[in-house]
């Protein structure tokens, strides 16, 4: 099999385990700046599958594509430390407020900009939304077939892939031809860790915007080492219908956001003392809740 051109769709997500008061903006959208940001866990599973195909098929390149603010370049570097060949940051204010469909539109237009693609791999879903929609929506926009819930991807001769899918009620193995979009679940193998040599090689990889914020001029270094420049795409670099971007391109609107406030009700408070547990069990038996 010839080397494949693989794109990994990845997202930098707010770590939803650490959400503070200022996490939401007044318009109901997420204030990402106020939260710690991480590589979406299932996108790391997806990256690992892409890297395994690269290990098996010489000449394969793995490129991370992410849409987000400038700091999302962090996950591209993270991916490069772990084995990705490079990455592209799709960033523009025009994308702000995108729902899954507007996001998928922007991503698919960016994919078209990146030349011939054999395989697109993405995490099944991101922990900030848990929707699992962007993968299939990108596939539809690109007119590609899709395999969701993948646990294992194996490249086969004849430009085909064998994919093992983990469904809620079992396992299914399918075969299909490339090009293709595959989404990977969290039960797939964990991503390999950072490689020390790659860390040294790529730790100064930066987007042009990040470079402009440097206090010293390293331009010559980046001219000599092209792998240190992380490609940035903005709306002006891709062909888009502006009506399909951001809030205006999003059919779903957030009508209301409620912060979760628990309403206390009168609970019987018990200790671990024998008498307490004994009387609790008696009460439950007498009221026929158990027994």
């Amino acid at each position: 099999m010839k080397g494949l051109n693989i794109i990994v769709l990845a997202k930098q997500v707010p770590d939803t385990r650490n959400v503070g008061k200022d996490a939401m903006k007044a318009d109901g959208t997420v204030n990402r700046a106020a939260l710690p940001a991480i590589f979406n866990p299932e996108d790391l599973n997806a990256l690992e599958q892409a890297l395994r195909v690269k290990d098996a098929v010489p000449g394969t390149t793995v490129t991370i594509l992410t849409m987000g603010p400038g700091r999302a370049a962090e996950i591209i570097r993270e991916g490069m430390y772990r084995g990705a060949d490079g990455g592209v940051l799709l960033t523009d204010r025009a994308f702000a407020g995108s729902d899954t469909l507007a996001t998928s539109y922007a991503l698919s237009q960016a994919v078209k900009e990146l030349g011939k693609v054999d395989l697109i791999v993405a995490g099944r879903q991101a922990i900030d939304g848990d929707t699992a929609q962007v993968g299939p929506q990108v596939a539809e926009k690109l007119g590609l077939n899709q395999i969701t819930y993948a646990e294992e991807i194996v490249a086969e001769k004849g430009n085909k892939l064998k994919v093992v899918r983990r469904l809620e009620n079992g396992v299914e193995t399918v075969r299909t031809k490339l090009p293709l979009v595959v989404t990977v679940t969290g039960s797939a193998p964990d991503c390999r860790s950072r490689n020390a040599k790659r860390l040294m090689k790529f730790k100064h990889a930066k987007t042009l915007n990040e470079l402009q914020n440097e206090t010293q001029d390293y331009t010559h270094l980046y001219d000599e080492r092209p792998w240190l420049t992380i490609k940035e795409l903005t709306v002006s670099d891709i062909e888009v219908d502006h009506e399909q971007l951001g809030l205006s391109g999003s059919p779903t609107k957030v009508k209301k956001i409620e912060n979760v406030v628990l309403q206390a009700k009168e609970a019987k408070k018990l200790s671990t003392a024998d008498e307490d547990i004994d009387s609790l069990m008696k009460e439950l038996i007498e009221s026929h809740v158990i027994g």
């Binding site: 309403q263 206390a264 018990l270 024998d274 609790l280």
Partner: peptide
């Protein structure tokens, strides 16, 4: 605890065996 009918403040490893014991005793 805010939506519970009974709140037992304590360690699961201590409480659960007691629930088993007293359920058996009372039935």
């Amino acid at each position: 605890n805010a939506i519970a009918d009974y709140v037992i403040t304590g360690d699961v490893a201590e409480v659960v065996p007691k629930m088993i014991k007293f359920y058996k005793q009372n039935t």
